[in-house]
Measured scan of single mutants.
Amino acid sequence: LVRYRTISKIPQITLNFVDLKGDPFLASPTSDREIIAPKIKERTHNVTEKVTQVLSLGADVLPEYKLQAPRIHRWTILHYSPFKAVWDWLILLLVIYTAVFTPYSAAFLLKETEEGPPATECGYACQPLAVVDLIVDIMFIVDILINFRTTYVNANEEVVSHPGRIAVHYFKGWFLIDMVAAIPFDLLIFGSGSEELIGLLKTARLLRLVRVARKLDRYSEYGAAVLFLLMCTFALIAHWLACIWYAIGNMEQPHMDSRIGWLHNLGDQIGKPYNSSGLGGPSIKDKYVTALYFTFSSLTSVGFGNVSPNTNSEKIFSICVMLIGSLMYASIFGNVSAIIQRLYSGTARYHTQMLRVREFIRFHQIPNPLRQRLEEYFQHAWSYTNGIDMNAVLKGFPECLQADICLHLNRSLLQHCKPFRGATKGCLRALAMKFKTTHAPPGDTLVHAGDLLTALYFISRGSIEILRGDVVVAILGKNDIFGEPLNLYARPGKSNGDVRALTYCDLHKIHR
């Protein structure tokens, strides 16, 4: 019993810090008490220290592992850092350059016999395009090294910054494609005289377009951006097909006994025919423009016929181009109408809503002055909100995010209106959640004399007048207030005048 009563005193000691020596009952000389009392004092002292730490809000209350900052290894790049964003855009520009100039170089340097010394005699450094290609190869190699040090988000939505895990993730992902696209074939085969082989191998750079397509997928929600990307894709495919079309004609031209190829026909049409040795002929500019003209006309199913396939190889390629053109029509131009419709969806919704308003007016036989006010209010409210119901949009977000959005939407009023000066951010967040926005066209009466005042109004834009009878008592403008002081009276009061809008007004109100 003594032991039980001794232990039962522990909660009292913990909360009230009572010393055991003052209790005459606990001072009985028993061996059990002498053993338990020192333990009680020690526990009391420890609990006292913990309570003191909690009340003082000291940093040592938290466990040590929670006080440590997340460790980022040296030379690790955050995937959302500004440097990584700028670097990704730079790589994107280099990939676009590669997609345009690599097929052009591979096709127009394929057994090209233009006048001038061969590239091997001039030297590697004197070729501007080769120098640019070398810079692109170096940048792609540097990009691989950067990807080995860039964080990523795993399946659990955690940012991984450990170098080993980053390397394994990159090896399992895009490393092989990036490595093949970054191989400097110019340096590996330079001086061997195989410019045709170098041009063909350099087309491996186009593998990076797969990554670019995935990154550009984030802009699919913007109709104008999608339309622009589709047109660029169409032009890029036409450019690639033009390079292939020229390569076919250029390879067949020296081996044909009869002059029936499209390059021969082009030379005869523009007065620059090929001679018996295969030299001469149109310039590279004429060849490229004509090839691009043929691919565009074939892809769009126009086909004027002034550039036509004559050999079997050219006919087979033309059939493939027609098939590609039909697929592009289905996948690209078939979506253009939907994209344009999405661009004008706001206008369509406006006309639909206006039609419903006019049908309501016609069905209920609203008189002319009231009908005009109804239409003007709808037009003004639509121009202010673009038909978007803010309350319906915010309803799907958590309250903390709703408060931040409301604070942002009402920031101008909260910053410049005098009653809100000096208020804490928590108070402003709470008030912003209570605001209701209303609009009024010129001549609209917001409050009639004798109406119950259940709200306090803040003028965000425009001006109003307060009338008693036919006498203008006051004219209020931006950041002015009218209405009933909230919670100042037990019952809502009545208006002693009319409140009429002089201009288009936007008002925020808080109800009782």
Rank of each mutant, 00 (worst) to 15 (best):
L67M: 14
Q68F: 13
W75Q: 01
I77K: 01
Y80A: 08
P82I: 10
W89L: 01
L94M: 14
S105K: 15
L109M: 13
L110H: 07
T113V: 10
G116E: 05
G123D: 04
Y124F: 15
A125R: 14
L129D: 03
A130G: 03
V132C: 14
D133P: 01
D133G: 07
D137K: 11
D137P: 01
D137S: 05
I141R: 01
V142C: 08
D143T: 01
L145C: 08
N154R: 09
E158Y: 04
S161M: 08
G164L: 13
G164Q: 11
G164W: 14
R165L: 07
L176T: 14
A182R: 01
P184S: 01
F185D: 01
L187Y: 10
G193K: 14
E196D: 14
L197P: 04
L197H: 04
L197F: 05
G199L: 04
L200F: 10
L207V: 13
L207S: 13
V210S: 08
R211V: 01
R211Y: 01
V212G: 04
A213E: 05
L216M: 09
R218S: 05
Y219D: 01
Y222A: 10
A224S: 05
F228N: 01
M231S: 01
M231L: 05
C232S: 13
F234G: 01
L236I: 05
I237T: 09
I237D: 01
I237N: 01
L241M: 04
A242C: 01
A242K: 01
C243L: 01
A247R: 01
M251V: 01
H264F: 04
D268Q: 13
I270Q: 03
G271A: 01
N275E: 04
N275P: 01
N275R: 04
G278R: 03
L279S: 13
L279W: 07
P282D: 01
D286G: 01
K287W: 01
T290G: 01
L292A: 01
F294Q: 01
T300L: 14
G303H: 03
F304N: 01
N306S: 01
N306G: 01
V307Q: 01
V307M: 01
P309A: 03
N310W: 01
S313H: 03
E314Q: 03
L323C: 05
S326G: 04
M328F: 09
A330K: 07
A330P: 13
G334C: 03
I340N: 01
R342Y: 13
R342I: 05
S345I: 09
S345P: 05
T347V: 04
R349G: 09
H351Y: 13
E359Y: 03
F360S: 02
H364T: 06
P369D: 10
R371C: 12
Q372V: 15
R373L: 03
L374M: 07
E375H: 14
H380P: 01
A381P: 03
Y384P: 03
I388V: 07
M390L: 08
V393H: 01
L401C: 03
A403C: 03
A403W: 02
S412D: 12
H416N: 09
P419N: 06
F420L: 08
R421W: 03
A423S: 03
T424H: 09
T424R: 08
L428A: 12
R429W: 01
A430M: 12
L431V: 06
L431E: 02
M433S: 06
K434T: 03
K434R: 11
K436A: 09
K436T: 12
T438V: 12
V447R: 02
